[in-house]
């Protein structure tokens, strides 16, 4: 973690209209995230964590307050500029993976580069490297339907990394995975964080949140607590202690 401020949020507010009802999803959130932090955002449903993620990810702009990503004032940007920021500075990892079913692993990871205006040197080489770094070297030509849940999420992570974004935003990345696979994914995140990547993760599972350095608690559109985690759980260690599926089955018999 460095002193460089990556994300600065001041008094952020956002209200949604659902039918005739107005929902004040965020009521004035202040937040600062430095480079290299690994932050978890927790809260019950309706706390506003999805909205906060959408703001941070530049999928939407706030009604009031300020959001700076690397000193860029997001509230002043138009749709096209937001899209550019999403392309270059944000890497999304979703709970439901959100890969394009008709594309292969390679093509899925390649996708963000297609929308990048500037030409990327040695693009293909880089794609191969990222796919290898998440351990899917032999699955480059497979379509998502031919991959397991864990493998799909790895493809999503490689896709999120391909344009070397400033932040990785993960929305319940282990939600659709079993506990072992979930730990494997957390291991990847922790490795990325050790390499200097800033990662923000939304989860409702405390066990997962304890893998991070800081947990931010949201309730009713406001941050109620920020907790520093002195000794985050190490996914690698947990994996070593975790019995294999085969062992578990034979133990049950």
């Amino acid at each position: 973690m460095t002193d460089k401020i990556i994300i600065k949020i001041e008094n952020l507010a956002k209200t949604y209209k659902i039918g005739d009802f107005k929902v004040r999803a965020l009521r004035g959130v202040d937040l600062q995230i430095n480079e290299g932090e690994f932050v978890a955002v927790m809260g019950p449903s309706g706390s506003g964590k999805s909205t906060l993620m959408n703001m941070i990810g530049c999928l939407d702009i706030p009604d009031s307050g300020k959001y700076f990503i690397e000193s860029i004032d997001v509230s002043k940007l138009n749709d096209n500029q937001l899209a550019e920021i999403r392309n270059k500075k944000v890497g999304f990892v979703f709970q439901t993976f959100n890969l394009l079913a008709r594309l292969s692993t390679f093509q899925n990871v390649e996708l963000p580069t297609i929308y990048t205006r500037i030409k990327i040197k040695n693009k293909n080489k880089r794609i191969h490297e990222y796919i290898e770094s998440v351990g899917l070297k032999n699955k480059e030509k497979n379509k998502p339907s031919e991959l397991s849940g864990g493998e799909r999420q790895r493809v999503a992570i490689a896709r999120a990394l391909i344009n070397n974004p400033t932040i990785i935003l993960a929305d319940e990345p282990t939600g659709n995975l079993d506990s072992r696979t979930g730990e494997e994914i957390m291991a990847i995140f922790q490795k990325l964080n050790r390499e200097g990547k800033t990662i923000i993760l939304v989860t409702h599972e405390l066990e997962i949140a304890l893998h991070t350095n800081k947990i931010i608690y949201l309730r009713d559109g406001l941050i109620i607590k920020e907790e520093i985690i002195e000794n985050p759980s190490s996914a690698e260690e947990i994996l070593l202690k975790m019995p294999n599926l085969e062992d578990r089955i034979s133990a049950a018999n």
């Binding site: 999928l59 096209n80 899209a83 550019e84 999403r86 999304f92 394009l100 929308y115 344009n163």
Partner: peptide
């Protein structure tokens, strides 16, 4: 959904 994914990844309206 696909359009949403593409936009999230950086596809512009055009």
């Amino acid at each position: 959904r696909e359009i949403g994914i593409r936009k999230a990844i950086g596809a512009k309206n055009k």
